[in-house]
Design a protein around this nucleic acid. Structure first.
Lengths: 252, 252
DNA sequence: GCTCCCGCCTGCCGTTACGGGAGGGTCAAG
DNA sequence: CTTGACCCTCCCGTAACGGCAGGCGGGAGC
């Protein structure tokens, strides 16, 4: 089969101008011309264009694409394998970006400032995924996230202020309980732990006891979250963490 | 905290020149300058740069990024949500591209030509994933794929020729059995069905009876595969399909 | 206090991958 | 035989930087 520029352009999702350009730089020259000088593309040309499109999507410059496509050492099948591999890589990277975004969202909820390093982890050339993986585990599956995002999306500025106020009030009361000398396993403390859980459930996502204890562990393991609670009152991170655990056991 | 261009550039994974450019076009102007005219970026600048980087990764032109970042109607949290959504979309698209590649690989194995439409399905603007989903179901999980690809990667040109020869020989013999008038359920036919299964197992991937009957269904359901067998001998697709099913039952 | 090197500054020209016409031929349908 | 859709070849424009020149600034080591 033979196709005109217009047909090829439409099928491949590119403009005619692009095909002209590819012809100019000899990246993809149609295998023939009509008597009137019209470009005629055949199936082999289409296969080449297919590879071009995939490599382009993967960010390769045209010159490099020409080089690898004209490399006699690799056949079409090899290109498919290579593209498969590269695409998988891209997907992983994008997934890391997604978790990074989720991380930033979570940090925002608690007003925890991100370090420059955290902001650009996925872009920077420092050692990859070490932290990303960790973060993944922390706020694992997107189940709770999705819900949280759906809800948060509808919040007005007023809602946010109320949320913040409730949060601060809760923090003050927990600090008071700590000051009173009541142990983390005491009813006063576990009651506030339970309230914390319900606060999250009401504002963000259905927070099960399991998720809650997960958060508790994070609060002591991750310095940024630790710092957040420590700023309210020294020792609060560990205190709250223990209270949450006891509360979860009590209610089970 | 305040940072210099160099520090910001390194952290964010961009060049200093890029930051200069962003300053020039007023996309990201540092919040201050030192007495000597050095650019000083603060944390808010970093947050803005963070959003810029994500939107750029998503393919937005700088001008548009400036517009949406300066839009008073959306705050940082809104951007995070938007980026989350867009990233998820990109991931889905890339995954579709991966299955398209796998589709092309499978087609190559059988020397089935792809239609222009199939080549560029993921790029074109025709109705999405209708076929993609279908294809997914057909050669479902990547378990068999991965193995197939691993093996195929090591094949020499000679291997391919031997494979092709074996394949053609098998086709000829099946055509003979059909010509002899033996029904699809006859030992002669099911024997060749079994041989087909072992051919696949030897060359591509461990082909269980279950996978094999799956392939059989595909051979009659997908016109491209049907056409492949029909070209060897009319009626072969249905004949082989039945033989494979009978063989699977017999051996169970 | 001086030097030295590294980092920062402002132009300014170059490049990639096309976009988008202008001006003019072509082809199939009515 | 016209007409509208499609094709051709120039040719200029643009976005997003890359990269260098030529010159100032600054801090650490002598």
């Amino acid at each position: 089969m033979a196709y005109t520029v217009g047909q090829v352009a439409k099928a491949a999702g590119v403009t005619v101008r692009t095909l002209h350009h590819y012809d100019e730089i000899a990246l993809l020259s149609p295998s023939g011309r009509s008597s009137a000088g019209y470009r005629r593309y055949d199936d082999d040309d289409l296969e080449r264009l297919q590879h071009i499109r995939y490599y382009r999507e993967l960010g390769f410059p045209l010159e490099e694409i020409a080089a690898i496509l004209d490399d006699p050492a690799s056949d079409p099948a090899a290109h498919l394998r290579r593209q498969h591999e590269l695409l998988s890589g891209r997907i992983t990277k994008l997934q890391e970006m997604v978790t990074a975004i989720e991380f930033a969202m979570e940090a925002r909820k608690l007003n925890i400032p991100l370090t420059p390093r955290e902001r650009f982890e996925v872009f920077g050339d420092f050692d990859p995924d070490a932290h990303a993986e960790e973060a993944e585990q922390r706020w694992g599956g997107s189940a709770a996230y999705e819900e949280s995002n759906r809800r948060v999306a509808r919040y007005s500025k007023d809602d946010w202020l109320r949320n913040k106020a409730e949060n601060e009030d809760w923090g003050r009361r927990l600090a008071e309980v700590m000051a009173s000398g009541a142990p983390a396993g005491s009813p006063a403390a576990t009651e506030l732990a339970e309230e914390h859980r319900q606060l999250i459930s009401r504002w963000f996502y259905e927070c099960s006891y399991e998720i809650h204890t997960g958060l508790a562990d994070m609060y002591v393991a991750d310095e940024r979250f630790t710092a957040y609670f420590e700023r309210i009152r020294p020792g609060m991170a560990a205190y709250l963490s223990e209270a949450i655990h006891v509360n979860a056991i009590n209610r089970a």
